[in-house]
Design a protein around this nucleic acid. Structure first.
Lengths: 240, 240
DNA sequence: CTGGTGGCGTGACGTTGGTCACAAAGGGTT
DNA sequence: AACCCTTTGTGACCAACGTCACGCCACCAG
């Protein structure tokens, strides 16, 4: 079997092992078969751009493997990273449904496997499969929810420190690390990228991390970060 | 007929004159009849709270008359106004679909007429009416789109002036005033509320308006604002 | 008229954090 | 080793803006 960019291709959604765990993949077999017939399994190298904000919607991208960076950017080049999409996520969904331009830019940061579905095919699929349509509504609610959290973090924070603390706590809650006394997390992003996630400058992120380390709140072990004082971090995240 | 809070109640969605113009109201008669049977026509005075962020979703609120302020607020009381909802808008939709808590707070700023539908009834209605389900997906896309714009405005702006310029331009584009040489708009909000919309302080808004007037970019005529120099405003909105 | 209240205008001041500039530390390649 | 290139660390400087403080005006009730 061909295996571009070092990926093990998932051939069919019907036999996909991760099917049950994922919102959009978990559909009755009849719908999945229909989906199967309109999807294009594709693969991208690291750094590929799936779509750019402002572009007319070509269709949806179901992420099967790898991570994708979702960002918006200003005319002057300043960019804001909204989230790093993980496998199972559907990208370009809202633009495809509404017909408006993609509202953000999607760029792979790993080699990725993606199922692409053309807009026309997808809309027809939704008309025919009411249960899929409901799943889409659920997915969109999820996305809206995330966007609201983003708005809250950006709009109601008093300082960059507060936003960084929020981000670290959110990351640690991803993998269930949050319940532990001293959560650990892999810092897979550069300071520059972290800065773009919280809407501040690279230097500020560096300084904030230095400060957190000095105050014994976090500790770096290679590329993993140990949160030594969860309470202090939470206090920073809520009181600004 | 009873007419609480000085409203002329719209009795039935089937005979509603505004039906065609509005996304959610524009459904086939069969679906509308089903909707009719599960909705509760209600009325609220000015200042009533439809739901609070964090609350478990009780159902959706279709706004028929009046305006509703949608906001999120921080633990310290600082609030951010996301938008002022106009008639035709469906409130609490995403939370009702996903089952997660309402992500924002809805408070009437006029006497309002509202059609309320309980969550259970609404979900059953969606299962039965695929076309309604698709409408919901469209509505959610719309909301997501708005949220993305909000994120962009908040996260990628360099200054409060830029955000205010963006807001004024957006307001003027609502009523088709934007095409005119010198668009006019009603300032229905206080400086305090405008500040809460762009995430800044009341004093800053006052100062910004004073500056805009001094530079002949806008002009106040009573409670209406005339934009005298659209170009300058656009420049402020894009170049920060 | 008088007092109360809510919105607006404005000065002074201090902090935050963006920007520039450069140094240091890795990490990979030749 | 010498060389890149990327990432991180740090100091200096300054504009933006949040905050406090207060005065003014309009409106309304008694």
């Amino acid at each position: 079997m061909l295996s571009p960019y070092g990926l093990d291709i998932i051939e069919s959604c019907l036999t996909c092992k991760m099917r049950a765990e994922r919102l959009f993949c978990d559909l009755p077999t009849s719908a999945l078969q229909a989906f199967e017939s309109i999807k294009y399994a594709t693969a991208y190298p690291k750094g590929a751009v799936l779509f750019v904000e402002g572009q007319a919607p070509r269709g949806i991208f179901v992420l099967c493997k790898g991570r994708v960076k979702l960002s918006i950017c200003a005319t002057d080049g300043k960019t804001l990273i909204l989230k790093i999409a993980e496998p199972g996520e559907v990208l370009g969904l809202s633009a495809t449904v509404s017909g408006k331009p993609y509202e953000l830019t999607a760029e792979t940061i790993d080699p990725c496997q993606v199922n692409f579905v053309k807009r026309d095919d997808f809309l027809r699929f939704l008309k025919d499969h009411a249960d899929a349509c409901f799943k889409v509504a659920e997915q969109l609610s999820e996305k809206y929810n995330n966007a609201c959290h983003e708005v809250r973090a950006l709009g109601l924070s008093h300082s960059a420190a507060e936003k960084l603390a929020k981000l670290l706590l959110e990351w640690s809650s991803r993998n269930g690390e949050a319940v532990k006394q001293e959560p650990r997390l892999k810092l897979a992003l550069t300071h520059e990228e972290i800065a773009q996630m919280i809407g501040t400058s690279r230097e500020t992120v560096t300084r904030l991390f230095a400060d957190l380390k000095k105050r014994q709140i976090v500790q770096a072990k290679g590329s993993t970060l140990v949160i030594r004082n969860k309470q202090a971090l939470k206090a920073m995240a809520t009181n600004g």
